[in-house]
Amino acid sequence: MHHIIHTTQLKKHYLVGRERVAALAGVDLEIARGEVCCIIGQSGSGKSTLLNMLAGLEPPSAGHVAIAGKRISAMDEDQLALFRQENLGFIFQSYNLLPQLTATENVALPLSFAGVGKTQRLEIARRELTRVGMGKRLDHLPREMSGGQQQRVGIARAFVTRPKVVFADEPTGNLDTATTRRVLRRMLDCSARHAITLVMVTHEPELAQCGDRIITLCDGRVAENIVQDEQTRDRNRRLLFGETDD
């Protein structure tokens, strides 16, 4: 019961011309509640495909995915949308803020989908933004912010609904090293503060070291599934972040 995400024999095939290519060739996973799970692997190892299927963005060819006891692989589009609204957050590599909305409005967007009134959701969004250190950029449009700032807005947007799981797809892929560390720390903070499970895909093995669980994919299969104890994890985090503040 403490497993929030559970997959059995998850498979995904793509048709390339007439050839069937297996992106995932049977993945069995269990991710515990509150865990920070990092998925690493070479390009083409299937890590993005896995994330998409865990988040219900793509249906599996075979096998199934359950989150919080619900089989999302059996849901239709409508049910999935509602499920994502209530249970999932998502952080994108290219931030994906809506260009016409201010930082606050972007963060408030998932709340508006859930039917939260305007005044209330803007208030909640402002609080969330302040927490990720964006208190001075509340009314800025995305184009007026740096990549790191935009991604912090993205983080606030993912966590603002207090979902059960937040998925992050190469969240620091477009950022420089220093910014990457600051952004990553914000994510880990948010996850820890509300005990929200974080599933992050990255291609940088050193970033993955800060997770509780590190899953290495190779050719669509789980090559390694390591669970780190807290001491190791915290040591790795200290090594990674050093004395960076912000």
């Binding site: 988040a55 949308a81 509602l82 994502r84 609204q85 999932l88 809506l98 998932p110 989908f113 947007r157």
Partner: peptide
């Protein structure tokens, strides 16, 4: 994006 963020 809206779909991913849970817009019905």
């Amino acid at each position: 994006i809206m779909k991913v963020l849970g817009c019905e």
